[in-house]
């Protein structure tokens, strides 16, 4: 996860430790640091804040997607931006998820937890399960 605020890192670690005790989080203050670490490790998820110093978040996505050995890596972008073109650019570059990062930190913790719940419950390679809307009154939601 890219995050350069020591205070936020501590709070995020605490929140993840509580909501997902089996998950180990590593934090990087820049895209370059994160890319260097990817040379030696294979994480399950990459959480990017587009506003980070140095290499842009979009460049990080492109470079990760250019590496076939990282094909299974899920890339999630957190951003407070409301620029529609930015979402399109992130998806075009290869992001899997583009999530609004709330200003309220408690809310962000909740958003982070739900995001992790979703992606950790999905198969690493591809997401074959389709969303199915059952007719009113029925109760199955997934195939």
């Amino acid at each position: 996860m890219t995050e350069d605020s020591a205070e936020d890192i501590e709070a995020i670690e605490r929140a993840i430790g509580r909501s997902h005790p089996g998950l180990r989080a590593e934090f990087f203050s820049s895209g370059a640091e994160m890319l260097a670490r990817l040379a030696t490790t294979r994480p399950r998820l990459l959480l990017l804040d587009l506003n980070m110093p140095g290499e842009s978040g979009l460049d990080v996505i492109r470079r990760v997607r250019a590496d076939d050995t990282l094909a299974d890596l899920t890339i999630i972008v957190f951003t407070s931006s409301e620029e529609p073109a930015e979402a399109d650019a992130c998806y075009a570059a290869g992001a899997d998820s583009y999530i609004y990062k709330p200003l309220n930190f408690a809310l962000f913790q909740s958003v982070l937890s739900r995001t992790l719940d979703y992606w950790l419950n999905r198969p690493a390679a591809g997401n074959d399960a389709r969303i199915v809307v059952p007719p009113s009154g029925e109760s199955s939601a997934q195939t």
Partner: peptide, 10 residues
């Protein structure tokens, strides 16, 4: 959707 590819498929 948290997974836009799935939403597009739907």
């Amino acid at each position: 959707h948290v997974d836009m590819r799935r939403l597009s498929a739907m």
